[in-house]
Simulated scan of single mutants.
Amino acid sequence: MATTIEINKKSVREFLGSGKKECFIIPEYQRPYAWTDEEVQTLFDDLVEYTQERIDSPYFLGTIVSYTNDEKEQEIIDGQQRITTLCLLLRAIYTKIEKMDHTDERNNFIRQIEPALWQTDELTGKANRNHSLLESRVFESEYNAILANILETGMTGESDKDNYSKNYRLCQKLIDDYAKEEPLTFYSFINNILNKEIVLPIKPDSQDTALTIFSTLNDRGLPLSDADIFKAKIYNNITDSKARNEFIEKWQEISTSAEYADESIQKLFYYCMFYLRALENDKKTTTPGLRKFYSNNGFYRLFESNIMDNLNAILNFWTVVNNHEKLEGESWSSNFEILKLLDILSSYPNEFWKYPVVIFYLKHKE
């Protein structure tokens, strides 16, 4: 079936307003919000310069890559930092002008900002601040509730040190200072943010295509890995809250230990793929892509009860091989003949030896 990709240039107001039909979700597998005051200040300064120079052409903010998931939500693949910061900035503006005298300009922008941040009643136009159009579900972040509270109430604690709170307070200060120093262009500044700041949303019809586009476009930092996707899939398949917390702890423990063993959790999944292929008697000579292999038939392999045990066992193997550590209760890890052979294999000029050895280890580790 052919892939379809929807690309439409939109103003910030139009783009955020599309969240009324399909709300914006920062999915579980994304990394936490990471913009610092430097990035926020740079964005704000650019918008100020754009306003004061009275530039005719639109201000291009960049591309946003998303796709519509099964729950009819816009799952943000690339652009969460900019979208989140825009929402914090608009919330700071709203908090400011909400307290100002009721002029035509003030009332106009109140009406424009509300449907860009919250669900609004179709008949009355009244905003429901309990239902923001942006929600973060990053499951390793304890700050998701803070973002929701800021968008709902417009308040944050002065002592809060998370990036949402710090950047929101900075946005408030920048808006207060600008309104005081440039009162004649203050509403023009707001209008530019809402209506002359342009984004280019890219919406393919599948998560896989969205991730591919993101990997192609992204040059600002670490791209999402296949392991990030697997993490979210496993997490979402667990219904019990206690089991979810245990999974998070186990994932973080394996991920940290894998880095210490000079591997990565992504590579652990790769080694495990060869073991699972061996169990399935898969003798194809071509190696499938990691995400393609695990996504087959609805990611069923990720939901097997022993997937984390297999990853942990593979981690133990590489902890011995790479770090020369002895494992409690695993006599092989102190067996000189075994260690000698593993050291010889480690000197091999490529990594082909690793896959059959890992398969052999998982099969006979007891």
Score class of each variant (00 low, 15 high):
Val138Phe: 06
Ile77Cys: 04
Phe139Trp: 04
Asp176Ser: 12
Met155Ser: 04
Tyr67Pro: 07
Cys171Leu: 02
Ser66Met: 14
Asn108Gln: 13
Phe60Val: 07
His102Gln: 13
Tyr168His: 09
Asn163Tyr: 10
His131Trp: 07
Leu151Arg: 05
Asn108Ile: 11
Ala127Phe: 05
Asn144Gly: 10
Glu73Thr: 09
Pro58Val: 12
Thr156Ala: 12
Leu133Glu: 03
Ile93Phe: 03
Gly125Ile: 08
Tyr168Thr: 08
Asp104Arg: 12
Ile150Tyr: 02
Glu158Arg: 12
Cys171His: 03
Lys72Asn: 15
Asn107Val: 13
Gly154His: 07
Leu61Met: 15
Glu114Met: 07
Asn107Gly: 00
Ser132Met: 07
Gly154Trp: 07
Ile113Lys: 00
Asn167Gly: 11
Ile55Lys: 13
Glu105Leu: 15
Glu152Phe: 02
Ser66His: 06
Pro115His: 00
Met100His: 13
Ile97Thr: 06
Arg106Thr: 14
Glu105Cys: 03
Leu86Asp: 01
Ser159Ile: 14
Phe139Ser: 11
Leu90Ile: 07
Thr153Asn: 12
Pro115Arg: 01
Met100Thr: 12
Asp78Ser: 07
Glu140Leu: 14
Ile76Ala: 02
Leu170Phe: 08
Val48Phe: 06
Gln119Leu: 11
Arg169Tyr: 01
Tyr164Pro: 01
His102Pro: 07
Leu61Pro: 00
Gln74His: 11
Gln80Ala: 04
Ile150Glu: 04
Thr63Leu: 03
Glu122Trp: 03
Thr84Ala: 10
Ala116Gly: 00
Cys171Asp: 02
Leu174Tyr: 02
Tyr50Gln: 09
Tyr50Glu: 06
Glu152Gly: 02
Ser66Tyr: 13
Leu47Glu: 04
Asn149Gln: 11
Met155Asn: 10
Thr85Trp: 01
Leu61His: 06
Asp160Asn: 14
Asn69Asp: 15
Lys96Asn: 12
Tyr59Trp: 13
Arg91Tyr: 06
Asn144Leu: 05
Glu49Met: 08
Lys161Val: 14
